[in-house]
Design a protein around this nucleic acid. Structure first.
Lengths: 225, 225
DNA sequence: GCGACTTTGTGCGTCGGTTCACAAAGGGAT
DNA sequence: ATCCCTTTGTGAACCGACGCACAAAGTCGC
């Protein structure tokens, strides 16, 4: 073989990283159904992607397949989990316990694999003190203390838009470098901080665009002049 | 039987479509603050993108800017809204009224611009009949009737994973061609149907990947099993 | 009315991602 | 042990998106 590309694995394409959780989910399902090995073709189908893409994605992690056979489900689950950092336990704090924050706190997918909701915080005195998903909602004043004391490394922002930037600043100042933002604002953070955003209404708008195109087709451009 | 060559240069890149809602949001904020015109530089900053990219995006809609001045905020809001299909009213049905469905029903961003939650449906008799966000939760049995009678053209799936595909099939059979899926499964649908998915746990996993890389840096490669 | 200044719209080089297609690798049957 | 069949891993072409940089277009001051 060639010189073993040692810690070269560092260069996993972003697009690949975004798909690994998809593969992982499909693999978990297979493991539960007792499937021991799976071909790239089958796994790709289960994950809803092209099989060549899947093979290339997995090849970035290493050569974990066996030609003529496929991939060992259990082993692949472990490798992907390790690559994604899910073999360790991540403490997550959810800030903003409105409807969405509550839903997130109760969302099974969070707790299940590698993530643990370590704190719920809110500014509203009406909400502070409530028990949600087995956790006591704490006041936002204690944000920094909670982050430090419980080793929170990922913060989920589910506050109203107006409060998001301020909370974000405090969170960043407290040393957190990974933020999942549900508030419909563009957060400004240092380059070293990673922000991913989920905007529910944006997805709807994209659907509407395509729906409009399908339905009425192109509208007449009343655009002369 | 697809449309081989739509003669219109209505070929707006998917990446552009995904950003239009972002611009729209920034523009709305500016309109509220009474700003009449905005340069690509400023709008790009507000939306968190590169200004050249913004100009190229907008150029796909037409030449709506004035050189030396910028874009008329109000006019641009209208043009983008029209392009996205938000000048019409979209009836949305939310299927699955658990924590997430409830949060979505109450989510302001949905109702606000162009979208109207026309129905909430669930299979659980405990939930059916509840009033949420001013709507009565109906039984899933009436799915097809509700879709037809209220002109629902977009369906939001917030059911448990196990139920998603079945509901999806019924929804598609009822003629819906746009689905926003929150269930952690890969839905199989005809090509003519548009499915967008939002998976909350996937976003967290992507964050964990980057966080791990920042934190521990190189993981020890225990390669041989 | 004119020139200087501002800002748009876009041509073009570059880059990352996707897909095809196939040689290499391994397993199983005989 | 050998051959055939399956499936991986990847080279290479292709495709779309990104961003620089600049000419064209239009405004504003004088």
């Amino acid at each position: 073989m060639k010189s073993p590309s040692q810690p070269r694995d560092r260069g996993i394409p972003e697009a690949t990283v975004a798909r690994l959780p998809l593969y992982l989910r499909a693999l978990h399902g297979m493991a539960e159904r007792g499937i021991a090995t799976v071909s790239s073709e089958d796994l790709a189908a289960a994950a809803g992607v092209n099989s060549a893409k899947l093979r290339k994605d997995l090849s970035h992690l290493g050569s974990y397949g066996t030609r003529g056979v496929g991939y060992d489900v259990e082993y692949l689950v472990y490798q992907i989990s390790r690559e994604l950092g899910l073999t360790q336990d991540w403490a997550v704090a959810i800030v903003g316990v409105g409807n969405l924050g509550r839903a997130l706190a109760n969302y099974g997918g969070f707790v299940s694999r590698g993530f643990r909701v370590a704190a719920l915080l809110d500014a509203d005195p009406e909400i502070v003190g409530d028990d949600i998903a087995g956790l006591n909602v704490e006041h936002i004043d204690g944000l920094e203390a909670v982050i430090e004391r419980r080793g929170v490394s990922i913060v989920v922002l589910a506050t109203p838009a107006a409060a998001a930037q301020e909370v974000c600043d405090r969170v960043v100042a407290a040393g957190v470098t990974s933020i999942l933002n549900f508030a419909p604002v563009v957060l400004s953070v240092p380059d070293s901080v990673d922000v991913r955003k989920v905007d529910l209404s944006i997805e709807l708008q994209i659907l509407a665009f395509h729906e409009q195109r399908k339905a009425g087709g192109p509208l007449m451009a009343v655009d002369s002049q």
